[in-house]
C-alpha cells in the first residue's frame, strides 16, 4: 500500500472514530435527538404554534428511506465523478508513461 493510500485510510478511520467513540463511551444512554427538533420543541413549549405545515410529511419509515435516497444520490454522483477522474488519469498515464503523477 502506498503512503498516500495509507494516509487516506487513516483519515477515514479518524472520521469513523470521531463518531463511534462518543457512541461507545455513552453506552446507549442518550437518545441522540436532532438539534433541529430540540429547537422546535423549545419554541412550542414557549407557546409558539407553527403557522404553516409541510406540504408533504412522510411517515417515519418512509422519511428515513428518503434520507437514505438523498445520501445514495449524492454518494452515487460523487463516486461516478471520482471514478471517471481516476480513470481519466490512468488512461493518460498509460498513454504517456513518462510523466507519473506525484
Amino acid at each position: 500500500m502506498s503512503r498516500r493510500a495509507l494516509v487516506n485510510v487513516l483519515l477515514v478511520l479518524a472520521v469513523v472514530a470521531l463518531f463511534a467513540i462518543p457512541l461507545l463511551l455513552d453506552g446507549g444512554a442518550s437518545e441522540y435527538g436532532g438539534t433541529d427538533a430540540a429547537v422546535t420543541e423549545d419554541l412550542e413549549a414557549g407557546g409558539y404554534t407553527p403557522w404553516f405545515e409541510s406540504v408533504f410529511s412522510p411517515a417515519g419509515e418512509v422519511e428515513s428511506g428518503l434520507f437514505a435516497l438523498q445520501a445514495a444520490i449524492g454518494g452515487g454522483v460523487l463516486g461516478y465523478v471520482l471514478g471517471r477522474l481516476r480513470g481519466r488519469r490512468l488512461a493518460q498515464e498509460k498513454a504517456a508513461p513518462g510523466s507519473p503523477a506525484p
Binding site: 462518543p22 444512554a29 442518550s30 441522540y32 438539534t35 430540540a38 434520507f67 438523498q70 449524492g74
Partner: peptide, 16 residues
C-alpha cells in the same frame, strides 16, 4: 447532498 442527508451523533448526546 450526501453530507446534509446524514444525521451524526455527537458528544452532547444529540445529533445533527
Amino acid at each position: 447532498f450526501v453530507l446534509s442527508a446524514i444525521k451524526l451523533p455527537s458528544i452532547t448526546g444529540s445529533s445533527s
